[in-house]
Amino acid sequence: MADHTPDRLGATRTSSAAPSARLMLQVIDAFDQYARERRAATVGAGDGADDGDDPLRHVRWIADNYESRCGDPEHLQAHLEQLANELGLHDVWALRVAGEAVVAATPVVILRAAQRGMRAPAIAEAIGLAPARVYDVLSRYVRYTWRVDVQDAPDQWWPIDEGEQVAERRFVTESDVAHRATRIGAAKADGRSLRVLVWQGPQSDDADASYTHTVNTTR
């Protein structure tokens, strides 16, 4: 399988205000939800779980057949001709753009898997990449999560927004994430003070935040 780990993905995720970044988050969340539901169905039904409801079944069929025939030009050509007979122009567009979205989401998927305790070789095997490419993502990229709180009373904070950002370590710091989150939260602050907390990795206790920033927005 070709190595599809992106070299330009940090820029795609670094601006959550961009429509493409918001779309990516929706794609990632949809895949996460799908994975959770599929795992639950598999556990409930045992190893013989029915794949009839798998929304990616046809995509998997395309991928499996393509990969298994890459070393056999004759059978590969037959598979491609079958695809050409089945797919219309809009189908090709949808699959191509969906593939680009998945490529763009790859660092997020890798980082989340690693943060759940999965080791790089296992991630590489599951995702179809060389282990070196997974290690490269883990060394270059970082997943920040953030939360914006407003102050309703002294020492009383209430969350109003949260999100995440995956970017290259050398280009984006916790303070950059906090600054962007402050702009997002300011529109909802209604003149109240803001507190932004940033974590490297998933959200945890407030005391474990790697960066905290408080802004007085009183007008």
Results as ranks from 00 to 15, higher is better:
182 T>A: 01
203 Q>W: 01
91 D>P: 07
146 W>G: 07
140 R>V: 06
19 P>A: 10
18 A>K: 12
148 V>C: 02
183 R>D: 01
120 A>G: 11
144 Y>E: 12
57 R>F: 04
47 D>P: 15
77 Q>N: 01
25 L>Y: 15
105 A>Q: 02
192 R>P: 03
154 P>E: 03
198 V>W: 10
25 L>C: 10
202 P>Q: 08
102 V>F: 14
204 S>K: 08
46 G>M: 03
147 R>H: 04
18 A>H: 13
188 K>I: 00
9 L>C: 14
97 V>T: 09
91 D>I: 05
73 P>I: 00
22 R>S: 02
35 A>N: 15
147 R>Y: 01
77 Q>E: 04
28 I>A: 08
187 A>T: 12
198 V>Q: 08
63 A>D: 14
61 W>K: 08
87 L>E: 15
204 S>P: 02
208 D>W: 01
207 A>K: 08
128 G>S: 08
141 Y>L: 08
33 Q>H: 06
118 M>Y: 00
2 A>F: 06
210 S>K: 12
119 R>T: 12
142 V>L: 11
151 Q>M: 04
175 S>M: 05
172 V>A: 00
55 P>S: 13
201 G>E: 07
63 A>P: 07
114 A>I: 07
126 A>S: 14
216 N>G: 07
98 A>I: 07
35 A>D: 14
179 H>P: 01
200 Q>V: 06
208 D>H: 01
130 A>N: 06
102 V>I: 14
42 T>F: 00
98 A>F: 10
169 R>P: 06
42 T>S: 03
197 L>F: 02
100 E>I: 11
113 A>C: 06
32 D>L: 03
5 T>F: 11
198 V>E: 04
58 H>P: 02
189 A>S: 05
193 S>E: 05
30 A>G: 11
165 Q>M: 14
16 S>C: 05
13 R>I: 05
156 Q>E: 11
43 V>P: 03
88 G>Y: 05
64 D>A: 05
107 P>I: 15
51 D>L: 12
50 D>Y: 00
172 V>K: 01
17 A>N: 01
100 E>C: 09
138 L>A: 11
31 F>Y: 13
193 S>P: 01
218 T>N: 06
55 P>C: 10
85 N>D: 14
123 I>V: 15
11 A>M: 02
177 V>Y: 11
187 A>D: 12
216 N>P: 02
45 A>C: 10
15 S>W: 08
39 R>C: 11
21 A>M: 09
200 Q>D: 06
